[in-house]
Simulated assay, not measured.
Amino acid sequence: MASIKKFQVTFDCGEPERVARFWCEILGYVIPPPPEGFATWDDYTRSLPPERQGAGFVAVDPSGEGPRLYFQRVPEGKVVKNRVHLDVRVGTGLVGDERLATLEAECARLVALGAVHQRTLLADEENESCIVMQDIEGNEFCID
Rank of each mutant, 00 (worst) to 15 (best):
S3A: 13
S3F: 14
S3Q: 13
K6D: 12
F7M: 12
Q8F: 11
Q8N: 15
V9Q: 10
V9H: 10
D12L: 07
D12Y: 11
G14M: 06
G14I: 04
E15F: 07
E15L: 08
P16K: 07
E17K: 15
V19Y: 00
V19T: 14
A20N: 04
A20G: 11
F22I: 01
F22D: 00
W23G: 00
L27R: 03
L27I: 09
G28L: 08
G28I: 06
Y29G: 04
Y29T: 04
P32I: 03
P32N: 10
P33C: 01
P34G: 11
P34E: 08
P35K: 06
G37R: 05
G37E: 07
F38T: 02
T40V: 10
T40Y: 11
T40E: 09
T40F: 11
D43A: 15
D43E: 15
Y44I: 02
T45V: 14
T45Y: 01
S47E: 05
L48C: 10
P49D: 11
P50S: 11
E51Y: 05
E51F: 07
R52K: 15
R52T: 02
Q53T: 07
Q53P: 05
A55Q: 09
G56P: 00
V58E: 04
A59D: 01
A59T: 01
A59R: 00
V60A: 09
P62K: 03
P62Y: 03
P67R: 08
P67N: 09
L69K: 05
L69C: 09
F71I: 01
P75G: 12
P75A: 13
E76V: 10
G77W: 01
V79A: 14
V79L: 14
V80L: 06
V80Y: 01
K81Q: 14
K81W: 00
V84W: 08
L86F: 12
G93L: 06
L94S: 06
V95G: 04
R99P: 06
R99K: 13
L100W: 02
A101I: 04
T102L: 08
T102V: 12
L103N: 02
E104A: 11
A105F: 06
C107K: 12
A108W: 03
R109V: 08
R109W: 09
L110Q: 14
L110S: 07
L110W: 13
V111Q: 09
V116Q: 12
V116R: 15
H117S: 08
Q118C: 13
Q118M: 13
T120F: 05
L121Q: 12
L121D: 07
D124S: 12
E125F: 10
E126G: 03
E126P: 00
N127D: 14
E128I: 04
S129E: 03
S129A: 15
C130D: 06
C130Q: 03
C130A: 07
C130N: 09
I131S: 02
I131K: 00
V132W: 03
V132N: 07
V132D: 05
M133E: 01
Q134G: 05
Q134A: 14
D135P: 06
I136W: 05
E137N: 03
N139F: 00
E140V: 13
E140P: 02
E140H: 11
F141W: 06
I143M: 02
D144K: 04
